[in-house]
Structure formats: C-alpha cells, structure tokens
Amino acid sequence: MEYLQFILIIILSPLINGVIRKLKAQMQGRPGPGLFQSYFDLIRLFKKDMRISNTTSWIFGAAPYILFTSTIVAAMIVPVITTVSPFSVMGDIIAIIYIFALGRFFMALAGLDAGTAFGGEGSSREMTVAILVEPMLMLSIFTAAISAGSTNIAMLASISGPIYTPSHILALSAFIIAIIAETGRIPVDNPDTHLELTMIHEGMVLEYSGKYLALMEWAHYMKQMLLFTLAVDIFFPAGIINNTEPAALAMSFGIYLLKMFSIAFFMAIIESSRAKMRFFQLPSLLEGGFVLAFLSLLTYIMTGR
C-alpha cells in the first residue's frame, strides 16, 4: 500500500480541483459545475482529435508527457497517508521543487514553440513568477527543514512535538502565498479565464488540444494537490501515520481527505474574496512573501522556536 500512495494523488487531484470550483461557485451564488466535472473534462479531452500547429517541433509533443510524468515522479516521493515512504530515497523536498521546475521548463518551451505572441507571453510571465516564487518557497521550506534537521519529506512529516511556533506560522504564510502563485490561482493568475491579456498558464497551453491538453491539465491538477499535500505534510502532519496497518491507513486517509477539503475551502475563500492583481503588482505580493519567509527563518535562528 505504501508503494501506491502516489496513485491517490493522481486519482483524486481532479476531484480536489472540482471541489474548489464548486465551493467557489457556491460562494459567488452560482450553482457551479458538479464535483466530478474535472474528470468529465479530462475524459472528453482524451477522446478528442488533436490539431497541432505546423510551426511546432517535437518539443510541443514531448512537453505534455514530460510535465505529466515528472509530476507523477514528484508525487511518488511525497508521503500522502503514511510516512513509510519507500520512494523517498529517490529525492527530498529540494528534488521535488526541481522536478516541478523541470515540468515548468518544458511547459514554457512549449509555449514558445508555436510562435504565437500569447504563448510567448505566457512563458515569459510564468518564468517571471517562478523567479519571484522560488526563493520564498525554498526559504519557507528551509525553516521547516532546519527545525526538523532533514530535507527528507518523510522526516518532515513524522516530526513530533510542538510545531505551531512563531517561525512555523510565518513560514506557513509564505508557503501559502507560494502555493497560490505556483498553482496559478487568484490573485496571481485566474485559472478560469481565457482573457488573452491576463492569462499566464492558459497562455502557454493555448495551442494544445485533445489528449495533450488533457495531460497538461491533469498535471496541473496533480501539482496543485501535491503542493497541498506538501503543505499538510510539513505544517499539519497531525494524523499521518508511521506504519502500514490497513485500519490505520483507512483512518489516515480520512483525515487526509478532510485536510485536503479544508485547504480547498481556504483556497476558494481566497479566490472569491480577492481580485486578480495586475501583473506588475505581483512583485510586491511575492516580495512580501519572501520577507515573511526570511523573518520565519530569522525567528527560528534567534529564538530556536
């Protein structure tokens, strides 16, 4: 079972996205699509024919596969419901961040491949946002890693003792800002828009159709859920078990789902209550996040808590 916990992320990630969409719609007074709408979208896309630009090269075809498989490999490393995580020898949390970067690298290349202005714009903005997010994400992770004495995610998740210290709370705030930016949610990017001048993620995948688009979207869902899982592993590990007994696993799975829904709820609140920021206002938000992460580290170094 412990070998297969990453399958949970693959399977459940469209559901979490559906939950966020549903909750968001409810908050805005709309009925919204069903919880399982993301699955239907994916299935339909898989069954569609594809239209590919003549301008593109093999990068365009390879990018969805690289993005999708690299996200799965990142998911393999993360402990989901038990900290008995045999794949964690493959890498640690730093490796995960860099595997994400691998996917993003190819996605941005694919955006440039079709030779349209939208794709280039999306790639440019995606990489710009990544530049601003990466140091903050890393610093907030470092705070946790230093206090746990390891960058191994299973170790981070199985830490016992008080973790709701001032430094952790600051690091968590930075981490949440990083998640919002990485998953392309309001106020950084609007996942529902195809309004040409504001899109980031959608700009890059504009030329995609059919199964490639499905892979891209699915990878995006998985990355979102993975980041949520990382957040709970690092900052709310309570409930995750350190053995593989079936009963305990079921219990842990329930707790995990609850945590995921809570985060989805939180994201929906943020998305509904904030307006999307202008692109060039983003640096102030993300720099703020960096300062938070830096302060958390400083707090931990100075106070030891």
């Binding site: 299935i43 898989f46 069954k47 569609k48 024919d49 594809m50 239209r51 590919i52 630009s53 003549n54 301008t55 593109t56 596969y65 079709a114 030779g115 349209t116 939208f118 504009l206 030329e207 059919g210 199964k211 499905a214 892979l215």
Partner: peptide, 19 residues
C-alpha cells in the same frame, strides 16, 4: 502512453496554422 491509448484510443491528428 499505454494509459492514454486505453483511455482515448487512437485519435486523428490534423495540422494547421497557429492560432
């Protein structure tokens, strides 16, 4: 690759200009 083949089967690919 195997999964996609099972899920979607073989689909037609057409080529055209960029949007």
């Amino acid at each position: 690759v195997i999964f996609i083949f099972i899920a979607g089967g073989k689909r037609k690919i057409s080529y055209g200009d960029s949007w």
